[in-house]
Design a protein around this nucleic acid. Structure first.
Lengths: 198, 198
DNA sequence: CCTACCGATCGGTAGG
DNA sequence: CCTACCGATCGGTAGG
């Protein structure tokens, strides 16, 4: 689940989440240790275990913290016309200048751990579902407005676009290809115009 | 580089590679230790360090071994007509029934380590380039034959298809979505028919 | 929330 | 290629 809305966090917990983020970006997920988080926090490892019993519990809370923080930008332009709204969503999902490469790299590491951590997987699935729903709604509204093909399955189209989004990020990280996000965005655009357009 | 063709391996080295594969599938990349490989091999860890000085050296050799082994299926149907050849390539890249999920999971873990291991990255880049070249050639031949749009950039189209391929696999692993590969294949098909078709 | 520490595990090596 | 072992590092805890 991941308690999408009101995850209560004390100030101390908030500081630990922030320190975890810094340590993650600096060392990557594989080298992320309680010691390094504590160092970033400026306290002892015991201080962390006081708030989170195990490292796994901390990491699950951390992923929740991360995905919470990502839910703000995504609801931009909810009132724009469907075609523009869909384009805006894709621009947000495949940004022209990604914020922090280190972070993106670490995110793929965390994603790759999903098969070994059911809580991780559940959170990534939930986030995927929510994102796909936004795409689907924009596509459906576009079909209602006559700009997209009404016979196309909006849910399937949303899945197709998400495959391009995930592929773009994977290639950006694995191949260290700066253009991978731009390429994926352009392909998504072609897909919308050629497959989806009425 | 990765010595794509004639990587010489002794029998002992071949056995270590095979044992590494088994240990990788069983425990995943993050939990892949020299000890576990040795256990799968039925020998001591010193036996492994006799053939590979460091764990990293072993892993680089192992990735080379893996990608070597993947270069066989991919050249199927080199003589078919372009449209069929492209479809065959995509079927190979996004198979209906992937062989071993555990292995696929571990491969994403290894891909996610590319930013921390230049040898890994170089091997993934090389493999990507080779695969894209196959797609590009099929698309170009299709354009020459008049079945694909001659104005489309074949290299760009190949990149687009690779984003779908990588996205499909990432989603298959991260979301544990059995249909992710089929969905990506279908989207690739739509892309070929709607964007690429003459 | 700290100091001090434990048991487990890791990659790697000496000596044969 | 084995036995035996080392130094480093890990997550976690006792006791305050």
């Amino acid at each position: 689940m991941g308690n999408s809305e009101g995850t209560e966090r004390t100030d101390a917990q908030e500081e630990i989440m922030s320190a975890t983020y810094e340590a993650l970006c600096e060392h990557g997920y594989a080298a992320l240790t309680v010691e390094r988080i504590a160092s970033e926090l400026g306290k002892s490892t015991a201080a962390i275990h006081y708030h989170y019993e195990t490292k796994d519990e901390l990491l699950v809370a951390f992923l929740d913290y991360l995905l919470d923080g990502m839910n703000e930008w995504i609801d931009t332009k909810p009132d724009a016309e469907p075609r523009k709204r869909l384009a805006g969503l894709l621009d947000g999902l495949l940004p022209a200048e990604p914020h922090d490469r280190q972070f993106t790299v670490a995110m793929l590491e965390m994603r790759a751990q999903a098969p070994y951590n059911e809580s991780f997987r559940a959170q990534f699935v939930e986030r995927d579902e929510r994102t796909r729903e936004l795409l689907k709604t924009a596509i459906e509204d576009g079909a209602d407005a006559g700009v997209f093909d009404g016979d196309a399955d909006a849910g399937d189209a949303a899945r197709s676009l998400m495959a391009l989004v995930d592929g773009g990020w994977t290639r950006y990280v694995v191949l260290d290809d700066e253009a991978a996000l731009t390429d994926a965005r352009e392909t998504a655009r072609e897909y919308v115009e050629s497959v989806l357009a009425a």
